[in-house]
Design a protein around this nucleic acid. Structure first.
Lengths: 235, 235
DNA sequence: AGGAATTTGTGCGTATGTATC
DNA sequence: AGATACATACGCACAAATTCC
């Protein structure tokens, strides 16, 4: 190894297991080999393996039961693409999904200032219809610096905006801050999305920091509080 | 010790240190003795002490710097009591505070089921007026198992419910889950708290797990989305 | 029902790496 | 450069929860 600083062993192990789980090598609900077996197979001490497993448990990929074993969680979002997605059905869960409705260049003084850009800076604005289990759940407006790319086609971002960021723009979102209040349904309301609570609507303002610790994305989300909730878990 | 199930040693240590920090025995910014010294003084292995310190670090009471030492964080005032408090002024920040308005025994089928109790189980219900910078910001209703204590006086909980839980009831909240939607202002609306957004109101339903990993507390919060927001940070 | 085997949790001790002073 | 202090890694013993016979 000529690497300047290689990662700690327990991180290497946890990342290895994370990839294997993500690749479907270990299936949801399945029990992993015992600590002793795994440690031996991987050639590390049990304590080191335990630290890796603890890491994955706190990240929600594993569940560890004393006397029983270590199990792969039925991760609803194994791909980590939905890592920061915080909306779920009030009836519980729901597989997230998004349709890009609209993609245009605009200027916006407020957003520009949040992004630390001149007020007349060109921006990209995405408007998406978010779905949970294929049911319209929220409307979303996302803004990024317009200089990232001269041209963006809807096809580029149809899969996942986060993948697009990473693959095409060379950054990824590592941290977000959400502010949740109440707002009115915006006027670009989509016909498929019709909250019926008078005009009151759940409203999320999000700032997203990239791996370079810059605010690279600002988004606004309106959701129907009758069918959808914002869920936050803290430890 | 004749206790049926005593707490793990590293938890006992972390709670001891937590009390000492909270009592001001260790001052903010101060450096703690080295791991080796502390472990020796407390009569535990270094590894055990490390686990306790890690616990406190993740709770934001300590900061550990390799090569330097372990420092008491300049906790904004009554440390970690507001660890799970997630409301802030839309204008930014705000020092949190609470008035206990009402404290009674009730039964409630819905809450009882959330707590895993029989539907007619006696419960304690706290109603509080939450303030930010002394301004009324939200109304809060908190439910716990009625068997925890036969009598609770308002004076007992006037400082902090969390401190009361830990000191008098012997548990503490280590994890919460929030669901944020929109609701109507409840009918026990306090005269000082008058959201003026029609009848739409920010609404938080919280489940709180204790250190024993049981749901020990259920709470409902109504906040004025005109002046207050729910703020969540993710990494 | 109950006891043995299995599996994770806790605790101890030590050696070595790495960042800080 | 050397001393100090936290981070990582190893290994072992026993406790507690679960499972299985």
């Amino acid at each position: 190894m000529s690497e300047s600083t290689r990662l700690p062993l327990f991180i290497q192990i946890s990342e290895l297991l994370r990839r294997e789980i993500s690749a479907g090598y270990w299936l949801p609900g399945e029990r992993l080999p015992t600590e002793a077996e795994l440690a031996k197979k991987l050639g590390v001490a049990v304590g080191t393996l335990r630290k890796a497993l603890t890491e994955l448990e706190s990240n929600g990929l594993l569940e560890r039961k004393q006397g029983s074993g270590t199990y792969v969680k039925n991760a609803p979002d194994s791909s980590a693409v939905y890592h920061f997605f915080r909306l779920e059905l009030k009836s519980g869960g729901g597989l997230p999904n998004a349709d890009v409705l609209n993609l245009e260049r605009h200027t916006n003084t407020h957003v520009a200032s949040l992004l630390g850009l001149p007020s007349n800076a060109p921006l990209w604005r995405f408007r998406r219809l978010r779905k949970l289990d294929q049911q319209p759940a929220a409307m979303e407006e996302i803004w990024i610096d317009g200089r990232h790319s001269e041209h963006i086609a809807i096809e580029d971002v149809i899969e996942s905006l986060y993948v697009f960021y990473r693959e095409k723009l060379g950054f990824w979102i590592s941290r977000v801050q959400d502010s949740i209040t109440v707002d009115h349904v915006p006027d670009w309301k989509h016909p498929d999305f019709a909250p019926d609570v008078g005009s009151a609507c759940g409203y999320i303002e999000r700032l997203s920091w990239s791996n370079q610790d810059r605010i690279e994305e600002v988004s606004f989300t309106w959701y129907d509080p009758e069918s959808v909730r914002y869920a936050a878990r803290w430890t």
